[in-house]
Design a protein around this nucleic acid. Structure first.
Lengths: 382, 382
DNA sequence: GGGCCGAGGTGTTACGTATAACGTCGAGGC
DNA sequence: GCCTCGACGTTATACGTAACACCTCGGCCC
């Protein structure tokens, strides 16, 4: 057994130790080749045991196979050498990595940053990691998530808005969880959706109750299932009311672009819309700016609704009436679904509820007889 | 890497999961064990060459060692089998991973999301990947970045604001690039800073020119080098002007907290400040809300400045006078520095310039004789 | 015809880990 | 005295890849 390793034991004050002024911040301990990271074998040598024992102890599988004393020795030596397992080797050996890829359009959109946060929190609790691939913009021409995410992966969670990357993902054969995507679409092992259409119906109901009949719908110029659903739901809700109409305008998803688009639409010939339904708080903020510059008061002259309930929604004035999306929860459920799939369990089928939050940017249609329609209820949910 | 590879698959094509009618989108080709991901050896067998040749061809190192015809064959077979190299194995073999860890407080802060974007863009161009560890909040108790980032790493880029994780990072011995941190602090292989103090001086100069003398400074309740620098720079700039004074208030970094703090400070007994200098646009937005609710007009009655130049700065009204920080560039330079260190080259010493952007939230001090002080120049830089 | 060369490969190894399969050794049982 | 048996480890692989060293063979020079 442990052949009392002590190489210089009898030598007493041998020169061995004097030769180590060690400027090294990371202490490479005893017999370890200097400069290199210690391996489990180095720990084994230093502790006087075999590499297998080190692996057992540090992997916490030693009970009944290694004596507690030896286990302690191993742990101490590992610590003092600054040993950290080589994850590449471990992943290779194990055949999996406990790492998931999250594919989103861009982390600079608060919604997706929050999705990430939720996913990462759940992952962390289950010993998983999450790496992000923000798909098209800002990252350059690489349309292949795998070329970019250098890490070896166990599975993928993808927003349906990151369309260009999806085909590569499908072909990879990795377990795929789709976020907010068409339920008809096959090919995902699981799916986490938001009740987007219901959110739009809540918005439409709120505005219709306030007496609005002429609507402007500001939508992003993005081909995505989510936005099609919104347009259809709005058209259906408004179309069900006689005399009500909606006009849709599309453009880039920025405050300034929305301001310009709203300016054009609000100064166009013909009767002006009295309410603007926006597919995002960012757009709504732009609309409010356009309105103010045209001398229109929000909500007295024009009602504006957002979507997402970003931090922005309560930073601007008036605070935006919007639809709160449980972004973190989307990430959490997505991760849970992926974990279930990897475990061979059936993932839960999720459609997360969304909620209208009435704030200050919506009010009765201009010219309404006071009291004839229910007024807004600022902060009703807030 | 592969899906959680059923460990030994003892029964061969066992009954384990009858639940797989899976019309596999990835064609497992010819002699490949079904269900498993093809390896380079599978490709070799199918192409009638050795594994070494496959490695050479796919690694693009075949010129002069393999005939073009053979190379084509190999590539075709690889494609038709749906082969993708096992990154864990490659990383193990190569001894590095071409993956960097970015440690930031939270990706939901636009600044850090943009830092990530910049770092990821540079990484991508150099065949590197970036994984994120958002340190303290929202992620739970794990203070060890390495426990969370499952990927094997080559180096680390860390924001100085992510303090709790730093000690673990230092001990790891991995090359470390610090962002916006104390130059006195040793222990980083490189550093990328912003000319924060200069930004504060620009703000102070602008406001002093406008005649302001009583300042409120809204700072986050975070112990961080950056914020200390700002406080000192502001105190120095204001202190240099006779009769000028600054009072500092600290609080959480949110719109609402800032609104409340500003409300308290603006209604406190004694002469009211005429300008509020905020350490972030988020805080400035809160101050504007507080001002409006107190019946104070911005900028006529109160000037407000932000910091960061987030999207928020132009979404609110009035648009914020603020200091533009080149967030993406911070990420880019950070990644470049790390690449340099990994290459054994000397990293560039960076201090990125910042720029005051004068918009609508600042104006002459109330009661100033018109024309006696230079007016604001809205959009002068914008 | 021997030697040499380059083109076109192949055999083999090592990376660091986790784990299955296999010792060894002293104490008891019979 | 032999066998068994648990406690405590060890030996020996295998994971998939990259790359070094080696091999073969036809052509060509002298």
């Amino acid at each position: 057994m442990a052949d009392g390793q002590r190489p210089p034991a009898p030598g007493g004050g041998g020169p061995r130790h004097a030769t180590a002024p060690e400027p090294e911040p990371a202490p490479p301990g005893d017999g370890v080749p200097p400069g290199a990271r210690p391996t489990s074998r180095d720990v084994a040598r230093a502790a006087g045991v075999s590499q297998a024992t080190v692996s057992l102890v540090l992997g916490d599988k030693w009970r009944g196979r290694v004596s507690p004393g030896t286990a302690d020795t191993v742990r101490d030596t590992a610590r003092s050498l600054g040993y950290r397992p080589n994850l590449a080797a471990r992943n290779l050996r194990l055949g999996h990595t406990r790492t998931a890829l999250l594919v989103v359009p861009a982390l600079t959109h608060e919604f997706f940053a929050r999705v990430y946060t939720g996913a990462a929190a759940v992952a962390e609790r289950h010993g998983f990691g999450v790496v992000v691939y923000p798909s098209p913009d800002g990252i350059g021409p690489a349309k292949d998530p795998f070329a970019s995410a250098r890490a070896a992966l166990d599975g993928v969670i993808a927003s349906s808005m990151a369309t260009d990357a999806l085909t590569a993902l499908r072909a990879s054969g990795l377990p795929l969880v789709m976020l907010d995507s068409d339920p008809e679409d096959r090919g995902a092992a699981a799916r986490v959706n938001l009740a987007i259409a219901d959110g739009v119906r809540q918005v439409a109901g709120h505005l219709l109750d306030l007496g609005h009949r002429r609507y402007l719908h500001l939508a992003p110029a993005i081909d995505s299932w989510t936005f099609e659903v919104r347009a259809r739901a709005l058209a259906a809700a408004v179309g069900a009311v006689p005399g009500a109409s909606v006009r849709t305008v599309r453009g880039p998803f920025t405050v300034d672009a929305a301001r310009e688009a709203a300016h054009r639409a609000l100064t166009a010939p013909g009767p002006r819309p009295t309410a603007v339904v926006c597919d995002g708080d960012t757009l709504a903020a732009g609309v409010c700016k356009a309105a103010r510059r045209l001398g229109l008061r929000v909500p007295e002259d024009l009602s504006v609704t957002g979507f997402d309930d970003l931090a922005l929604a309560t930073a601007v004035e008036p605070e935006l009436t919007t639809v709160r999306l449980p972004a973190e929860q989307v990430g959490e459920r997505g991760m849970h679904a992926l974990l279930a799939v990897l475990d061979g369990r059936a993932p839960a089928r999720d459609e997360l509820p969304v909620q209208l939050v009435v704030r200050e940017s919506t009010g009765p249609v201009p010219g309404a007889v006071p009291g004839s329609v229910p007024g807004p209820v600022p902060g009703s949910v807030r």
